[in-house]
Simulated scan of single mutants.
Amino acid sequence: MPAFSLEPEQQAWCAELRTLAAQRLRPVAEKGEPGRVDRALLAELGRLGLLERLFTSGALDLCLMRESLAHGCTEAETALALQGLGAHPVHAHGTPAQRARWLPAVADGSAVAAFALSERAAGSDAAALTLRADPDPSAGGGAGRGWRLTGEKCWISNAPEADFYTVFARTAPGAGSRGITAFLVPADRPGLTGSALDMLSPHPIGALAFDGVPVTADDVLGEADRGFRVAMGTLNLFRPSVGAFAVGMAQAALEATLAHTARRDAFGGKLSDLQTVAHQVAEMALRTEAARLMVYAAATAYDDGAPGVPRRAAMAKLLATETAQYVVDTAVQLHGARALRRGHLLEHLYREVRAPRIYEGASEVQRGIIAKELYAETPPPAGEAP
């Protein structure tokens, strides 16, 4: 399927999701407490079958789902996305026992997942993480191997309220990205504590402290010392869908601006009659559509197993999140003071749109990935050694 074309069934599904977001999910989200896990919202997402689709959909379907939900209820979109981010490593790399224990509960909204990669000194540079997994000869486990986790994680979405964490720790000191292991760590594991951070966010973001937390081979996701692949594989899937989240917000801001400028009286006519205003709206639409197409292209490349997925994923997240920031900011400017009133759609979007330019790799990191991949794909000039 060409990346720029959606099938009628996909278009109908997106329309259904936008309706569900506005009519079923937004009323639930409005009753939630900012900065806390909204378990009622997760339960509703589970009843609608949307959480289960995290484990049966490809990258493009994930993007369509996140874009459509973001258009009508950003809180529902974020709740769904965080379940997917935290649980995807279990789905993709977990043992049958791990999958049976956690995935059904994630799908029905009764278990909250979290992805614990970032640290205070290792946010953008994920390979530099310092959470230690020290060998524990006394531990058991399926392969008779165990570790003790010691250190901290920070900026972790859904912490400290998650029921389990996908945790990335260093099992081979000095080995860079080759010495990291992914572990599935239940929240009630001895030695694991968490604290909330006061952030500009509708969901909890916190820090985790690991004081000799015991883990065994039964808790490993994938292979020992190969956890960086688990992390990057998860991010390559979810980065385009972060872009889809951004596109959904940009589209909502664009539609609000079209309606406002078409009816707002100004200078003897409608605001939309002013060429400067009309050109700004055209630019908003242009950038939103360009970002949407790049997101769909990156997701389709992932689903098709095409080359260059990390570069495409980085491009999609970068363009879409930067575009959404521009579109929402312009929408606020064209609405004037009313857009800054608490409870206005654009006031809400203005708060929501900033964080995606940072999490899952800041914009600067995405540029670095793009450049690295481009140079790696460029053969040396003829006659020169590689």
Rank of each mutant, 00 (worst) to 15 (best):
A3G: 08
L6A: 15
L6E: 10
A12Q: 03
A12T: 05
R18E: 09
A22K: 14
P27R: 10
G32L: 13
R36Y: 00
V37F: 02
A43W: 02
L54F: 07
S57R: 05
A59P: 05
S68G: 07
A70P: 02
H71V: 15
E75W: 11
T78V: 09
A79C: 11
L82C: 04
L85P: 03
H91W: 07
A92V: 03
G94Q: 02
R99H: 02
R99K: 10
R101Y: 06
R101L: 13
A105T: 04
A105G: 09
A107R: 04
D108W: 02
A111C: 15
R120I: 15
L129Q: 03
L131P: 00
D134Q: 11
G146F: 05
T150P: 06
K153M: 05
A159E: 04
D163G: 04
D163Q: 03
T166N: 09
A172R: 14
A175N: 11
R178K: 09
L184C: 09
D188I: 06
D188V: 08
D188W: 08
P190R: 13
G191L: 10
G191F: 14
S195Q: 15
L200F: 08
P202I: 15
G206L: 11
L208G: 06
L208W: 01
L208V: 11
A209G: 10
D211M: 06
P214I: 06
D219Q: 13
D219K: 11
E223C: 05
A224T: 06
A224E: 13
A224V: 14
F228S: 11
F228W: 12
V230A: 07
A231D: 08
P240I: 14
P240V: 13
S241V: 09
G243S: 04
F245W: 14
A250F: 03
A252L: 05
L254G: 00
E255L: 13
A256H: 05
T257R: 02
A259R: 14
A262W: 02
A262L: 12
D265P: 09
A266C: 12
L271F: 02
T276L: 07
T276S: 13
A278L: 14
Q280S: 11
T288A: 10
T288N: 06
R292I: 05
R292F: 04
A297Y: 00
A299K: 04
D304M: 15
G308H: 04
R312F: 12
A314M: 12
K317C: 07
L319K: 05
T323L: 06
A324F: 00
V327P: 01
H335N: 05
A337V: 15
R338C: 08
R341A: 13
R341D: 09
E347R: 13
P356I: 11
I358E: 13
V365A: 08
Q366H: 05
